[in-house]
């Protein structure tokens, strides 16, 4: 028996909206410690990693490890049927070929339940080594979303250059060039608005804006986003999911031809 109840059900809705355009299907691995997901997009350029700790749920039970293959656009459609303030419970029996979703209104006057078919999936799992990154930048997620959107007007790629003074995003194309420089915040009164750069070594990397714009769909999940970068390894774009865990996107850099 698997059952996970989340009073702040809107987190599920936001999470699905964050990944449904990047991934078509994925396996939700459920165990006694929580729910995890790891999947690459169809072109193998990016990877999504989700971790939700059992402690973060209001009720959590998982008697036997369960791998649920889920068609994400379908789950997203069903999650859209939940109200923003609804409590969401996900349930499955052992060896089930369906998953149940129960949406309860806060006042308990409306209860909806949906059942969705699971799918058989064979996916490759990537071993991601624990890495010390050369630069880790924390910034408001809305600022990151805005920068990716604005620079997409100029080109397909962004060059992210990080030094201890701050981080610079640049794009160029037929119409010209654009540079957006963010300096490290002088004071950190408002933690959510701060730009914080933690640098061991300066880096300058090139990434496809198309993917960063997909990642930025996770903006409603968290006020801050964390970018971790090292030369010649994938960028990590991390959004915290409240007390539950995290949503991480990995993006392979563009490399010199």
């Amino acid at each position: 028996m698997f059952e996970a109840r989340l009073v702040q059900g809107s987190l599920w809705k936001k999470l699905l909206e964050s990944i449904k355009d990047l991934l078509n299907e994925a396996i939700f691995d459920c165990s006694s410690t929580g729910i995890t997901l790891q999947a690459m997009d169809s072109s193998h350029v990016s990877l999504v990693s989700i971790s939700m700790n059992s402690d973060g749920f209001d009720t959590y039970r998982c008697d036997r490890n369960l791998s649920m293959g889920i068609h994400l656009p379908s789950l997203s459609k069903i999650m859209k049927c939940a109200g923003n303030d609804d409590i969401i419970t996900m349930k499955a029996t052992d060896d089930a070929d369906t998953v149940s979703l129960v949406f309860e209104s806060q006042n308990n006057e409306k209860v909806s339940d949906y059942e969705m078919k699971l799918i058989d999936l064979d996916t490759e799992h990537l071993g991601i080594p624990e890495t010390e990154y050369s630069c880790v930048v924390k910034m408001p997620s809305s600022e990151f979303q805005r920068i990716c959107r604005d620079l997409s007007q100029l080109g397909d790629s962004v060059v992210i250059a990080c030094t201890k003074e701050g981080v610079k995003f640049s794009a160029s194309g037929e119409l010209g060039t654009g540079n957006i420089k963010l300096c490290q915040s002088a004071s950190t009164d408002k933690e959510e608005e701060a730009v914080v750069v933690d640098m061991n070594e300066a880096v300058c990397l090139t990434f496809a804006l198309r993917y960063l714009n997909f990642f930025a769909k996770a903006t409603p999940l968290s006020a801050q986003v964390q970018l971790s970068m090292s030369k010649d390894v994938p960028l990590v774009v991390e959004y915290k999911i409240s007390e539950l865990g995290f949503l991480r996107f990995y993006l392979a850099p563009k490399i010199e031809d």
């Binding site: 690459m40 072109s43 193998h44 350029v45 990016s46 990877l47 490759e124 799992h125 990537l126 071993g127 991601i128 080594p129 790629s157 090139t206 496809a208 390894v233 994938p234 990995y250 392979a252 850099p253 563009k254 490399i255 010199e256 031809d257």
Partner: peptide
Amino acid sequence: GTMQGRMDSFFSIV
């Protein structure tokens, strides 16, 4: 020019 890298060339399949 630049070429898009792929995730599986950085991390190994386990």
